[in-house]
Amino acid sequence: HERALMVNRLQKLTRMLRVHPDPKWKQEQQELIKRLK
Score class of each variant (00 low, 15 high):
His1Tyr: 14
Pro23Thr: 05
Glu2Cys: 15
Leu5Met: 14
Lys24Glu: 07
Gln30Val: 08
Leu17Met: 05
Met16Phe: 03
Arg3Ala: 04
Leu13Pro: 00
Leu17Asn: 03
Leu10Phe: 02
Glu28Met: 05
Gln29Ile: 15
Val7His: 09
Leu5Phe: 10
Thr14Gly: 05
Thr14His: 07
Glu31Lys: 06
Leu5Thr: 10
Met16Gln: 03
Glu31Arg: 08
Leu13His: 00
His1Ser: 13
Val19Gln: 12
Leu13Lys: 00
His20Pro: 01
Asp22Trp: 08
Gln27Ser: 08
Pro23Lys: 08
Leu5Ser: 13
Pro23Asn: 07
Glu2Tyr: 11
Gln30Glu: 12
His20Arg: 11
Gln27Tyr: 06
Gln27Gly: 05
Leu17Ser: 02
Asn8Phe: 10
Gln27Leu: 14
Arg15Val: 07
Lys34Glu: 09
Lys37Ile: 10
Trp25His: 07
Thr14Ile: 11
Gln27Pro: 02
Leu32Lys: 00
Lys37Pro: 02
His20Lys: 11
Lys12His: 12
Glu28Asp: 02
His1Lys: 12
Leu10Asn: 00
Glu2Met: 12
Leu10Tyr: 03
Leu13Glu: 00
Leu36Ala: 02
Lys34His: 09
Gln30Met: 12
Gln29Pro: 00
Ala4Ile: 13
Lys12Arg: 11
Pro23Cys: 04
Arg3Gly: 03
Lys34Gly: 06
Val19Glu: 10
Lys34Ser: 08
Leu13Trp: 00
Thr14Gln: 08
Leu13Cys: 02
Val7Ser: 03
Leu13Ser: 01
Lys34Ala: 12
Gln27Val: 07
Pro21Asn: 13
Lys26Val: 11
Glu31Cys: 14
Arg3Gln: 05
Arg35Glu: 05
Arg35Gln: 10
Asn8Gly: 10
Asn8Ile: 15
Gln30Asp: 06
Pro21Trp: 15
Leu32His: 00
Arg18Ser: 07
Val19Tyr: 13
Arg15Pro: 01
Arg9Asn: 00
Arg9Asp: 02
His1Ala: 13
Lys24Pro: 00
Trp25Arg: 05
Lys34Tyr: 07
Leu36Val: 01
Leu5Asp: 07
Arg15Met: 10
Lys26Tyr: 10
His20Gly: 03
Lys37Thr: 11
Lys26Asn: 04
Arg15Gln: 13
Leu32Arg: 00
Gln27Glu: 12
Pro21Val: 06
Leu17Gln: 02
Asn8Val: 14
Arg9Trp: 07
Lys26His: 08
Met6Ile: 15
Glu2Phe: 10
His1Phe: 14
Lys37Cys: 15
Arg35Met: 08
Val7Asn: 04
Trp25Asp: 04
Leu36Arg: 02
Pro23Glu: 06
Leu10Val: 03
Ile33Met: 04
His1Leu: 12
Lys37Asp: 06
Arg9Glu: 03
His1Ile: 12
Lys34Thr: 11
Leu36Asp: 02
Leu36Asn: 01
Ala4Val: 11
Glu28Val: 04
Glu2Val: 10
Pro23Ser: 06
Arg18Trp: 04
Leu32Tyr: 02
Arg15Gly: 04
Leu17Lys: 01
Arg18Leu: 10
Glu28Thr: 03
Trp25Val: 12
Glu2Asn: 09
Asn8Cys: 01
Val19Trp: 11
Ala4Phe: 09
Lys24Trp: 05
Gln11Asp: 05
Arg18Pro: 00
Gln27Arg: 12
Lys34Ile: 10
Gln27Phe: 10
Gln11Pro: 01
Lys34Leu: 10
Lys37Asn: 11
Met6Ser: 03
Glu2Ala: 10
Arg35Lys: 13
Ala4Cys: 15
Gln30Arg: 11
Gln30Leu: 13
Leu32Ile: 08
Leu32Asp: 01
Met6His: 03
Lys37Gly: 10
Met6Leu: 13
Gln11Met: 14
Gln11Glu: 09
Arg35Leu: 14
Arg15His: 09
Val7Gln: 08
Gln30Ser: 08
Lys24Val: 12
Leu32Gln: 00
His20Gln: 08
Met16Val: 02
Pro21Arg: 07
Leu32Phe: 02
Lys12Phe: 15
Arg18His: 04
Arg18Tyr: 05
Arg18Cys: 15
Ala4Trp: 14
Asp22Phe: 09
Leu5Val: 11
Ala4His: 13
Arg3Ser: 04
Arg35Pro: 00
Leu36Met: 04
Gln29Gly: 01
Ile33Phe: 05
Val19Met: 12
Leu36Thr: 01
Thr14Val: 07
Ala4Asp: 11
Arg9Lys: 04
Lys24Tyr: 09
His20Leu: 08
Glu28Asn: 01
Lys26Ser: 04
Met16Ser: 03
Glu31Ser: 08
Lys26Trp: 07
Gln27Met: 11
Leu13Tyr: 01
Met16Leu: 13
Leu10Ile: 07
Pro21His: 14
Arg15Leu: 10
Val19Phe: 13
Thr14Ala: 11
Leu5Pro: 03
Pro23Gly: 05
Lys12Tyr: 15
Lys24Phe: 07
His20Asn: 12
Arg18Ala: 13
Lys24Ala: 10
Arg18Asn: 05
Arg3Phe: 14
Thr14Glu: 08
Leu5Trp: 15
Arg18Phe: 05
Glu2Leu: 14
Glu28Trp: 07
Arg9Phe: 06
Leu17Ala: 03
Gln29Thr: 07
Leu36Pro: 02
Leu13Thr: 01
Ile33Gly: 02
Glu31His: 06
Glu31Thr: 08
Trp25Met: 15
Val7Met: 14
Ile33Gln: 04
Leu5Cys: 15
Ala4Pro: 04
Glu31Pro: 01
Leu32Trp: 01
Arg3Asn: 07
Pro21Glu: 09
His20Thr: 08
Lys26Arg: 11
Leu10Glu: 00
Gln29Asn: 02
Met6Val: 06
Arg35Ser: 06
Lys34Pro: 01
Arg35Asn: 05
Leu10Ser: 00
Trp25Asn: 04
Leu32Met: 02
Gln11Cys: 15
Ile33Val: 06
Lys26Met: 11
Gln29Tyr: 14
Leu10Cys: 01
His20Val: 06
Lys24Cys: 13
Met16Ala: 04
Lys26Glu: 09
Val19His: 12
Pro23Gln: 06
Leu10Asp: 00
Gln30Lys: 06
Met6Gln: 04
Asn8Lys: 15
Pro21Leu: 06
Lys34Gln: 11
Arg35Thr: 07
Trp25Gly: 05
Gln30Ala: 10
Arg3Lys: 09
Pro23Phe: 04
Ile33Tyr: 06
Arg35Val: 08
Lys24Asp: 07
Asp22Gly: 04
Met6Gly: 02
Asp22Thr: 08
Thr14Arg: 11
Glu2His: 09
Asn8Ser: 14
Met16Pro: 01
Lys26Ala: 09
Val7Cys: 15
Lys26Cys: 05
Arg3Asp: 04
Leu36His: 00
Met6Glu: 03
Arg15Thr: 05
Arg3Leu: 14
Gln11Trp: 13
Glu31Leu: 08
Gln27Ile: 10
Gln27Trp: 07
Thr14Met: 08
Asn8Trp: 12
Leu5Tyr: 11
Pro21Phe: 15
Lys34Asp: 03
Ile33Trp: 06
Leu10Lys: 00
His20Phe: 12
Arg3Tyr: 14
Leu36Gly: 00
Val7Pro: 03
Gln11Lys: 15
Arg3Ile: 14
Gln29Met: 15
Lys26Ile: 12
Asn8Tyr: 12
Lys37Arg: 14
Glu2Ile: 12
Met6Lys: 03
Thr14Phe: 06
Gln30Thr: 09
Lys24Ser: 08
Ile33Ala: 04
Glu31Ala: 09
Leu17Cys: 02
Trp25Thr: 06
Glu31Gly: 04
Ile33Leu: 11
Met16Ile: 06
Glu28Cys: 02
Pro23Leu: 06
Asp22Val: 06
Ala4Gln: 14
Leu32Glu: 00
Arg9Gly: 03
Leu5Ala: 14
Ala4Glu: 12
Leu36Tyr: 02
Lys24Thr: 10
Gln29Cys: 13
Gln11Leu: 14
His20Ser: 10
